[in-house]
């Protein structure tokens, strides 16, 4: 029986999520044993032709060329998994969605007429059907291994989409919001990082994006009414790596438009 094949694709991104795959180290041989790594230019020059059983797609769609390329990737992929904040929410570069992109290109480039870019940075699922989304900036390598394992066994991957608080409390970490009054996005953020930042006594900045049924308004009200945050700080709180995720975008716009 031929091994299932794996392809890894890059769109607008920093490569950090692809590095998480290489960072698997101890498990890398097991992965290579379970799948044929057929197309992963960051790891190997050998590129085998598609179709591929599983495609991992990193990065967001920011150019007309990429908008077409993702269609080709979809056509060659059995299962398409979007990995990381860029692929699932547009990434940090989705900050452009709230600004004048032409103004940026004119200011930054000496010959802006050569720049071909879109007005927005969008998630892969805005363009093609995505079978599974793996969140985080970067993704968690253990979650990645779980997803690959489940896919190889023919199961629908099952990852928790609950709050970071759930894992924070399971790990016995002391709440930074309650003990220090820090604005922590943990209560509205998708778990999967094993409460990494709170474990180091720092508030969650939401790099895994919104959890299921996030009540961002209740959190934002607490931050402004009790923790002393100003409107400008609220906009910044929700506009980082997942600024384009609908729940975070709506909340930041509520403050930007003074609609709260």
């Amino acid at each position: 029986m031929t091994k299932p094949s794996l392809a890894v694709w890059k769109f607008a991104s920093c490569d950090g999520c692809q590095l998480s795959i290489l960072d698997c180290e101890d498990e890398l041989l097991a992965i290579a044993g379970a799948v044929d790594i057929a197309n992963f230019p960051e790891a190997s020059r050998e590129v085998k032709p598609g179709p591929y059983t599983v495609s991992l797609v990193e990065g967001s769609i920011t150019t007309p060329h990429d908008r077409e390329r993702i269609q080709e990737v979809r056509a060659q992929s059995g299962v398409l998994v979007a990995i990381g904040a860029c692929a699932t929410a547009g990434g940090i570069q989705a900050l452009r969605n709230f600004s004048d992109v032409k103004g940026f290109t004119d200011a930054v480039y000496a010959s802006p007429q050569y720049i071909s870019t879109l007005e927005t940075s969008t998630a892969i699922s805005d363009h093609v059907k995505v079978d599974f989304e793996l969140h985080g900036c970067p993704i968690d390598k253990y979650q990645l291994i779980r997803v690959l394992t489940d896919l190889l066994q023919g199961r629908t991957p099952l990852l928790p989409s609950e709050s970071v608080c759930l894992d924070c409390k399971r790990a016995g970490v002391v709440c930074v919001m309650v003990t220090k009054g820090e604005p922590c996005l943990g209560p509205v953020t998708h778990t999967g990082c094993n409460a990494l930042c709170p474990s180091y006594n720092r508030a969650c900045f939401g790099c895994f994006g919104p959890k299921n049924t996030p009540n961002t308004t209740a959190l934002a009200d607490r931050c402004t009414e009790n923790l002393g945050l100003e409107d400008e700080q609220m906009i910044r709180l929700f506009r980082t790596f997942n600024a384009g995720a609908p729940a975070f975008r709506t909340e930041s716009e509520r403050y930007e438009n003074q609609n709260h």
Binding site: A34, R146, T149, L152, Q153, L158, S163, C165, L166, T213
Partner: peptide
């Protein structure tokens, strides 16, 4: 916020979930 903190710190809450995992092989 349905964040679960109250149930996690509650000394009597006892709910749990059971999951199966296997390795890549």
């Amino acid at each position: 916020m349905n964040c679960t903190n109250c149930t996690m710190v509650c000394p009597t809450c006892f709910c749990f979930e059971v999951e199966d995992h296997n390795d890549l092989t």
